[in-house]
């Protein structure tokens, strides 16, 4: 009896956390999205969301997130593949993972220096004769820095799935007459698709909601959903509209998770 009581007691604190910090905040976001800036109940925020301004913003946010994810993927997959072929793969992996441990702000800050008017990038451009360029506060710099930041997160799951791949499967494919390329897209890629999917998950959703980078690196040239939310909450103080955008961000997130849902397959 005493065991049941204590068990319930310690479970209770955890359940309390779930209710207050997991369920309640989501409900509050939904609730707040139903009030306009004056605090009246209305669907005006949702109407506003479907106007050209917000739809364009959403689309552009999507476009950037997509661009970032694709570029990151195109760099990460071959890198992960090469990593599995190297001798000290765990060491190289560690080397690639290390930047992900460093505070995001510090990385952004470092790029402020590199891309700045008197930064390394411009000195280099001057040397090769392209002259001084405005790099910072462009969408190029935003995509570049984002890709840099997300690469380790994309590499890790892909590397893991490639690493788990039974090498004899490849031998079997070659043995059955598949060329190297056929073996890759008929055997290796389908078997590592789960890793690719989780890589896309950990890149696409954060790329939609970045706000600090857009402020520091893109200089308001790029407005993501995340930037818009921050803007509404902390600058405009229109919590209703902010919550509405957040609701859509959550919906997009759920949809994306659903689309890239990984099912375990036995091999």
């Amino acid at each position: 009896m005493e065991s049941k009581l204590s068990r319930n007691l310690y479970s209770f604190s955890y359940f309390l956390w779930i209710v207050i910090f997991v369920i309640l905040p989501i409900l509050l976001i939904v609730y707040y999205s139903l009030f306009d800036i004056e605090g009246n109940f209305s669907f005006v925020n949702y109407q506003k969301f479907f106007t050209a301004v917000y739809l364009k913003m959403t689309l552009s946010s999507f476009w950037y997130a997509f661009l970032i994810t694709v570029i990151t993927f195109l760099i990460a997959y071959p890198t992960a593949y090469l990593l599995t072929k190297t001798k000290h793969k765990q060491f190289w992996l560690l080397l690639i993972i290390v930047p992900s441990w460093i505070n995001l702000l510090l990385k952004a800050y470092a790029f402020l220096g590199i891309f700045g008017t008197y930064g390394v990038a411009n000195s280099f451009l001057k040397i090769i004769g392209m002259g001084e360029q405005q790099i910072l506060f462009t969408d190029f710099s935003f995509v570049f820095v984002s890709v840099y930041i997300f690469i380790p997160f994309m590499i890790l799951p892909i590397f893991n799935s490639l690493n788990e791949l039974n090498p004899t499967l490849l031998d079997a494919a070659r043995d059955l007459g598949a060329s190297a390329w056929t073996a890759f897209y008929r055997v290796i890629f389908p078997l590592t698709i789960d890793g690719v999917k989780s890589g896309w998950q950990v890149t696409f959703i954060p790329a939609l909601s970045l706000f600090m980078l857009t402020r520091l690196i893109a200089g308001n040239k790029v407005i993501t959903l995340g930037t818009a939310i921050e803007q509404q909450f902390l600058v405009t103080q229109d919590w209703g509209m902010g919550s509405t955008i957040a609701v859509f961000l959550i919906l997009i997130m759920i949809l994306f998770m659903f689309l890239t849902n990984t099912r375990k397959r036995g091999v």
Partner: peptide, 27 residues
């Protein structure tokens, strides 16, 4: 179900966590 609820805060974007906590604390 508990595990899914547990992971909500891990997969949620920071902005959403931040914004919703802001509402929570204000209320």
């Amino acid at each position: 179900m508990l595990l899914s609820l547990n992971n909500v805060l891990i997969v949620s974007p920071d902005v959403i966590i931040g914004a919703s906590f802001l509402i929570l604390f204000t209320i």
